[in-house]
């Protein structure tokens, strides 16, 4: 199920609440797909702006994820590091359609490259 602009990656329910799953991009970094306590879904490059920790492995709270390596907090909506830390992870637009998660193809390629 691939449309020109959006990649259908699966059901929303496949992502644990306050957790995440990844999408492998051949030849590039993974994309991490998060689902918050309120059920919002976000996609970011699975790479912390600090020292490339796997954000998909962090603890999700509110609208942020805490990186598993050194606990930087990264905004899921913008990819920006929160608080005192400075840095940004590329984000990938997401839309939900009939329970399916779609991520933007162009941004996925750009982020993962």
């Amino acid at each position: 199920m691939t449309t020109a602009e959006w990649l259908d990656i699966g059901w929303v329910d496949q992502i644990p609440v306050r957790g995440s799953r990844t999408v492998q991009v051949e030849g590039g970094d993974d994309i991490a797909v998060f689902r918050t306590a309120e059920g919002k879904v976000f996609a970011l490059l699975d790479r912390c702006p600090h020292k490339h920790g796997r954000l998909s492995q962090g603890i999700v709270h509110g609208g942020a994820v805490a990186c598993p390596l050194h606990n930087w907090r990264i905004s899921l909506a913008t990819g920006e590091a929160l608080g005192e830390d400075k840095g940004c992870t590329p984000t990938v637009p997401v839309k939900i359609d009939g329970g399916r998660v779609l991520i933007c193809r162009a941004s996925t390629l750009k982020a993962a490259a």
Binding site: M1, T2, L7, D8, I9, G10, Q14, I15, R21, T22, V23, Q24, V25, E26, G27, G28, D30, I31, V33, T108, L109
Partner: peptide, 12 residues
């Protein structure tokens, strides 16, 4: 396991 695999220019 990853949720999906994406192979650019190829199949998804």
């Amino acid at each position: 396991a990853p949720m999906a695999r994406f192979i650019p220019q190829g199949e998804f």
